[in-house]
């Protein structure tokens, strides 16, 4: 696919230009080139980001558990059609509650081209829990550091560059409800989707050497069995944790499909389980 088209207007080639290149497609998600998943803790303004990108007006109440089911929308950016899937807000992907399974299954088996993680700048530490977990599943991640205005009001400054360095993926500060940072977010999504951005994702440092060794051993074997699997380490961790769903995916060979689709084009498995 072509990324750059020559044109005389600087704005159209500059990824940071304006929102003018964004065409919100609402619920029209036909014929997309890329699938983008939207993950994040509850109450981080995930739905606001979803609305800003798709032009839909999903109601955004300020309380946890508002988004129970998955919402989908679309947008057109730089001549590429993106399908955006809003996942339920979760604190983690390890507790196997229903909403976590929906989110986890989509990120793992749905193989989105980009996973945007919306993070609340005022509660960064707790939000990073989810980010670090997702980074073990996929490195095609953009962190949307939302509510930076709230953080400022609380006397906090978040250094997004330091954060991007530590996480190894793009970090875009936004105030989604005022549309601030959305052009930059779009540019980052596009870069990651097209493969222009090379991530060096953070890996969880297991402080217990015995565990770290167990993970490495198992991960190596998983990689040998399912060549090209992008997240063998994570699968190893899930198996060591006794995750039935992942155990089943190994047994049935479902993981093999993921391995074959190592260059996610979003089409490998559209329908997520459950």
């Amino acid at each position: 696919m072509t990324v750059h088209t020559t044109t005389s207007h600087a704005c159209e080639t500059c990824p940071l230009g304006t929102n003018a290149q964004l065409i919100r497609l609402g619920i029209n998600v036909e014929g997309w080139n890329y699938v983008v998943a939207l993950a994040g803790n509850p109450n981080t303004g995930k739905s606001t980001v979803f609305n800003a990108l798709t032009g839909l007006r999903q109601h955004t109440g300020n309380w946890p558990g508002k988004t129970v089911t998955r919402a989908e929308g679309g947008f057109l950016y730089q001549d590429e059609r993106f399908k955006l899937v809003d996942l339920p807000g979760t604190y983690s992907l390890l507790s196997s509650s229903l909403d976590e399974e929906v989110a986890r299954d989509f990120i793992l088996f749905g193989q989105p081209d980009v996973t945007v993680i919306v993070v609340d700048a005022t509660r960064l530490e707790r939000n990073l829990n989810l980010v670090l977990q997702i980074l073990e599943i996929t490195d095609r991640v953009v962190v949307c550091l939302n509510l930076v205005d709230e953080a400022e009001r609380h006397g906090m400054t978040v250094d997004d560059r330091a954060l991007a360095r530590d996480l190894g993926v793009p970090v875009i500060p936004t105030v989604a409800r005022r549309g601030e940072g959305i052009p930059e977010l779009l540019a980052a999504i596009h870069e990651v989707a097209s493969g222009a951005y090379k991530a060096r994702p953070h890996r969880i440092n297991n402080h217990n050497p015995a565990l770290a060794q167990a993970i490495d051993t198992l991960a190596a074997q998983i990689e040998a069995r399912f060549e090209g699997l992008p997240n063998a380490r994570w699968v190893a961790m899930r198996l060591l944790d006794g995750d039935e769903r992942i155990l089943e995916a190994v047994r049935s060979g479902e993981l093999g499909i993921l391995a074959r689709g190592a260059q996610p084009v979003g089409s490998a498995l559209q329908q997520e389980a459950a």
Partner: peptide, 14 residues
């Protein structure tokens, strides 16, 4: 381990 990393990264950035 995750929270140890998260705390370190957050400390670094905030």
């Amino acid at each position: 381990s995750i929270y140890t990393d998260a705390a370190r990264i957050a400390d670094h950035a905030v």
